[in-house]
Simulated assay, not measured.
Amino acid sequence: MIIVKIIGGLGNQMFQYALARSIELQTNTEVKLDLQGFETYQLHNGYRLNCFNIAEKVATKSEIEKYIGSDSYFYKAIRRFCPSLLRKFQTEKNHTQYDSSLFELKNAYLDGYWHNGNYFEPVREQILKEFTVKGELSKGATELRERIASSQSVSIHVRRGDFLKHPDVGVLEIDYYKRAVEHIMSHVESPEFYVFSDDIEWCTEHLNFIENCHFVNSTVDELDDLTIMSSCKHNIIANSTFSWWGAWLNNNPERIVVAPKVWMKVNPQNFRWALDEWTEL
């Protein structure tokens, strides 16, 4: 059995689940999720994967302890400083880089973010089905979805919020969005732009140079936003796994996705998040 740790915001949770599901589907190995971290995790609305139509299999506490030991300070120290002492405990080796050896494992606990679309591209159609929201969208999101279906809609995601407190990640400059909009306008006839953000007031003030632009304030949560972004014809994403998924879930075969070339201001190992077919600016 494989156990995959789930933690972080919605975008990170989706990467972790997509890896888990891909391993299960491609190797016929039982894979379960470790959700114990959310007992104390207070950020980003907590665990959100259960809002999707996923194949949720949750590992028990005893199953997890067989792989990584208990939650005592002793085992916590081993996992942090000497993880190699735990034979079944495997942390991510190189962030964003594909590791094919994960699909050869039979008994392991995987701790990482797994930010690489190659892990689950072979099972894309199944992942698309499972990452659909249970129930109905909000009224505002439903009306917006109908509007964008009849236009050359382009989502723009602006991530601020907690990124303002993380200078190593950094908030994207306005110049990136100017260049991204220019790129779309040179390739798409009569585009309509829809801005999604955790700081829509800032966007209204600083992105008012964009023509045919709508600042979205009718959605009620991140599930609304993710669904509507993925329903747009094209996407301009931020340096955020949340908008990464908004673009990946976009099933338009002619979609144009613009992503920031500089994803993190501090990135000495040159980790890369964008897919090869996306345009990096």
Rank of each mutant, 00 (worst) to 15 (best):
I210W: 01
E192S: 08
T132Y: 01
G140T: 12
F163L: 08
R179H: 14
E143H: 09
R179C: 03
T204R: 14
D198A: 03
S150Q: 14
K129T: 11
H206Q: 13
L172Y: 03
C203Y: 10
S155G: 03
H206M: 07
E201P: 02
F196H: 05
V154M: 01
V158G: 12
L128P: 02
N208F: 04
I200G: 11
W202M: 09
H206F: 12
K139Y: 15
L137R: 12
L144A: 15
C203E: 08
H206Y: 12
C203I: 09
E130L: 00
R147C: 10
S153Q: 08
K134T: 03
P167T: 14
D175M: 13
E136V: 02
A141Q: 06
V181C: 09
A141Y: 07
E143Q: 15
E146S: 14
K139P: 01
K129M: 09
G161I: 05
D199C: 02
F163V: 01
G170R: 09
I184Y: 05
K129S: 09
D199H: 09
W202E: 12
I148Q: 04
F131C: 10
E182C: 11
V188N: 04
I127V: 10
V181T: 12
V158W: 03
S153L: 06
E205M: 14
L144M: 15
G135L: 06
S150V: 11
G140C: 08
L128Q: 04
H183R: 10
E192L: 06
S190M: 08
M185T: 14
L164P: 10
G161H: 01
I210L: 03
A149F: 12
V188C: 07
C203Q: 11
V188E: 06
V195D: 00
T132Q: 14
F196V: 07
F209I: 05
K129Y: 02
E182A: 15
K178Y: 13
L144G: 13
R159Y: 06
S138Y: 07
G140L: 08
Y194E: 02
S197Q: 06
S155E: 02
I127W: 07
G170Y: 03
F163R: 01
S197Y: 02
